[in-house]
């Protein structure tokens, strides 16, 4: 598999009136095509900052990020960003929410819209195309948010703690759904989370970050057999990984 994303010695410093904060320092990692990578780290260590840099929303203070060998300078079509809350626009119907990226990118093609509709139908939202977001459950809304990210066919998906606003039971089933959709649509994804179980059960590789300013502390290739995150959680290897990662993160806290 070839490399899709390269993060080369990236440093980022925030400047505010009260001083400066170096959120990440000399960060370096790669993501391969079709890989599912999780980034775990203590809260406030700079995970969101990393995604903001990859998405092109902010430019690194030092170092560079390459997507398909090309430097990322501003938000581009190849990357889809999914935030913590679903951020559906309440005044738009479900399908209009999904079409939003197409409108922004001025895609007039009916096929693109049909693709969005197909995805909604395929993933169980057939009866809700013309509904408004507040008629849907939290899990369904998050699925819509994912489909909205997929509609412009990005190569890389960035997920910033996308399940943390959900209650724990929904969380498990939604993460399962999201995983299946991402796999079925053959996407590369980076998931940021502080939930170790989520990271282990969903990803091919887990990157552990240090405290701020964050660097890569360790990387683990996870190869748990199991068809879905929920299945993988039942694998005896799972608790072994959990312990390893738990200790690594715990060491951070001190």
């Amino acid at each position: 598999m070839n490399t899709l994303l390269e993060i080369n010695n990236v440093t980022y410093t925030y400047h505010t009136k009260n001083g400066e904060t170096t959120a990440i320092e000399n960060l370096k990692f790669n993501v391969k095509d079709k890989e599912f990578v999780s980034i775990v780290g203590p809260s406030g260590c700079g995970k969101t900052t990393i995604l903001s840099i990859i998405s092109g929303l902010i430019s690194p203070t030092r170092g560079q990020t390459l997507l398909n060998g090309k430097k990322i300078e501003k938000p581009c079509d190849n990357i889809g960003y999914m935030l913590q809350k679903d951020q559906l626009f309440p005044w738009r119907t479900i399908e209009k929410n999904v079409f939003l990226p197409l409108e922004i990118k001025k895609v007039k093609d009916e096929n693109a819209k049909n693709y969005g509709r197909e995805l909604l139908i395929k993933y169980g939202l057939k009866d809700f195309l013309k509904s408004y977001p507040d008629e849907l459950s939290g899990g369904m809304r998050q699925r819509v948010a994912l489909i909205r990210t997929l509609v412009s066919k990005p190569d890389l998906l960035l997920l910033d703690e996308p399940f943390s606003a959900l209650d724990s039971k929904t969380r498990l089933s939604v993460s399962n759904d999201v995983y299946k959709i991402i796999r079925a649509e053959n996407k590369t994804a980076i998931l940021v989370t502080h939930d170790i179980s989520e990271a282990i059960s969903m990803s091919d590789r887990v990157i552990v970050l240090t405290e701020r300013p964050s660097k890569v502390k360790n990387e683990h290739v996870i190869s748990l057999s199991g068809s879905s995150p929920i299945n993988k959680r039942e694998n005896p290897e799972f608790s072994k990984w959990f312990e390893i990662l738990y200790k690594e993160l715990d060491a951070n806290e001190k």
Binding site: S55, G56, L57, K74, P75, C76, D77, I79, G80, Y81, L83, Q87, F89, L100, P101, I104, K105, S152
Partner: peptide, 9 residues
């Protein structure tokens, strides 16, 4: 929401 729109370009 502003961030989301920005990330879409």
């Amino acid at each position: 929401k502003i961030l989301l729109l920005k990330s879409m370009g």
